[in-house]
Computed example of a mutant assay.
Amino acid sequence: MINRQFTLAARPQGLVKRSDFAYAETPLPEPKDGELLVKTLYISLDPAMRGWMNEGKSYIRPVAIGEVMRAGTLGEVLVSKTPAFKAGDHVVGNWGVQDYAALPPEGLSKVDPRLAPLPKYLGVLGMPGLTAYFGLLEIGQPKPGEVVVVSGAAGAVGQVVGQIAKLKGCTVIGIAGGADKCAYVVRDLGFDACVDYKSQDVKKALRELAPKGVDVYFDNVGGDILDAVLTQIRMKARIVICGAISQYNNTTPVKGPSNYMSLLVNRARMEGMVVFDWAPRYGEAIQAMGAWLAEGQLKSREDIVQGLETFPETLNKLFSGENFGKLMIQV
Rank of each mutant, 00 (worst) to 15 (best):
L8Q: 08
A10Q: 06
L15S: 15
L15M: 10
L28M: 14
P29A: 05
E30R: 13
S44A: 06
L45D: 00
P47L: 07
K57Y: 14
S58T: 15
R61C: 01
M69Q: 07
M69G: 00
R70D: 02
A71Y: 11
T73V: 15
P83L: 14
D89F: 02
G93N: 14
G93W: 05
G96P: 12
E106M: 12
A116V: 04
K120T: 14
Y121G: 10
Y121D: 11
G123F: 15
V124S: 05
G129C: 07
I139E: 13
G140P: 14
G140D: 04
Q141Y: 03
K143E: 09
G145L: 14
E146V: 14
V150F: 04
S151G: 05
Q163S: 10
K168P: 07
G169R: 07
I175C: 03
A176V: 12
G178D: 10
C182I: 07
C182R: 07
R187A: 12
V195K: 02
D196P: 00
Y197F: 11
S199W: 15
A205I: 00
L206A: 12
G213N: 05
V216P: 02
V221D: 00
D224Y: 08
I225W: 00
L226H: 06
L230D: 04
L230Y: 04
K236E: 15
V240H: 08
A244E: 11
Y248F: 10
N249V: 09
N249Q: 13
Y260G: 00
Y260N: 01
M261E: 15
R281T: 05
Q287F: 04
Q287N: 11
L298E: 03
I304N: 02
T310C: 06
P312E: 02
P312G: 02
L315K: 02
L315I: 05
L315A: 09
S320R: 05
N323Y: 12
L327M: 03
I329W: 10
